[in-house]
């Protein structure tokens, strides 16, 4: 299996006349946490669904867990844990009943044991009778993760698992993800959060169906060849608009109380900023471009085929 859990190339998917995923190629190694990033509607969910056999690609080839993504989706489903974006367990079943049902669907032999163990690990043994619909967002997400781990999958596909979850639960969730990864489970996770992206071993950035960059966080940043300066000061609010018009400035983004100004042409950018520093009272420091700067750059250079 050459160490690659996911190895696909040239995957395409169209819905009607919308080309949702274009020539997707993805290599995910055994045991790594692979972050899948991109704006809303960029084809992340569709890509994940194709990887776990819920959707059939229109064209392309490749393997998932060594199984053909086009022909062996049934076998893939048995070894993949897929956590949907929206909570998709049954609200009107209790916690215990939900887990038991999922265990039955995967035809597990020692079902009762697995459910009990899972409840123990969740710390929900005492609440197994409680209806899943009455759980809070964070607990729902933990239950959903437990449900897709029940059949001991070798690959986890998590579609925006932490959307709408509070920071503490989010941190706990990521600790769990890292524990699973250490145990050898491969994880593909889509997210919008930069801090989560930085916790991934490797990343892929997808926009409007096209894969724009892959690699480790620093590789992705480096591939953009950005020069970034951080501007801080008391009166930087109105500054962003002025900056955008200056030579060499590709993008301006606010980070808390500071502004990040980036451009690929470092010399011109620096010249512009020097002029600025003479006329206004701001501090300008060269910094390493962050992942977010890189994503903003990627985003700006992607073509949106659906918008005008």
């Amino acid at each position: 299996m050459n160490g690659l859990v996911i190895d696909v190339a040239g995957i395409n998917k169209r819905f009607g006349d919308k080309h949702v995923v274009k020539d997707l190629s993805l290599q995910v190694r055994q045991g790594e946490i692979y972050g899948f990033l991109g704006p809303n509607g960029s084809g992340k969910t569709t890509s994940i669904r194709m990887l776990c056999g819920l959707l059939t690609p229109d064209s392309g080839r490749g393997t998932c867990l060594g199984l053909d993504v086009l022909r062996e989706s049934a076998a893939i489903k048995r070894q993949v844990g897929y956590m949907t974006q929206k909570f998709s367990l049954w609200d009107d079943l209790s916690i215990g009943e939900n887990l038991d049902f999922v265990a039955r669907m995967f035809g597990m032999r020692e079902r009762q044991k697995a459910v009990d163990r899972s409840l123990d690990e969740l710390g929900l043994s005492g609440r197994r009778q409680q209806l899943a619909g009455t759980l809070s967002g964070g607990w729902k997400q933990r239950l959903a993760l437990a449900a897709c781990l029940l059949h001991q999958p070798r690959l986890l596909l998590l579609d925006e698992p932490t959307a709408g979850v509070d920071p503490k639960a989010r941190r706990d969730f990521w600790e769990e993800i890292h524990r699973l990864s250490t145990a050898g489970i491969t994880i593909l996770v889509s997210t919008h959060y930069m801090d989560e992206a930085e916790r991934c071993h490797r990343l892929a950035y997808i926009a409007y169906g096209s894969l724009l960059a892959t690699g480790t966080a620093s590789e992705v940043v480096a591939s953009c060849r950005l020069n970034t300066w951080e501007i801080s000061g008391d009166r930087i609010h109105g500054l962003a608009e002025d900056l955008r018009g200056m030579a060499g400035v590709d993008q301006v983004a606010s980070f808390g109380a500071t502004l990040h100004v980036s451009g690929q042409d470092g010399a011109r950018l620096q010249a512009s900023l020097q002029t600025l520093s003479q006329v206004s009272d701001v501090r300008i420091v060269a910094v390493a471009p962050s992942l977010e700067d890189a994503f903003i750059h990627l985003m700006q250079h992607a073509q949106d085929p659906f918008a005008g």
């Binding site: 897929y82 949907t84 909570f87 669907m105």
Partner: peptide, 14 residues
Amino acid sequence: ERGTFENLLATPAT
């Protein structure tokens, strides 16, 4: 409607 169908489809159920 509740999205649970996707979960059902993701299992090996035929």
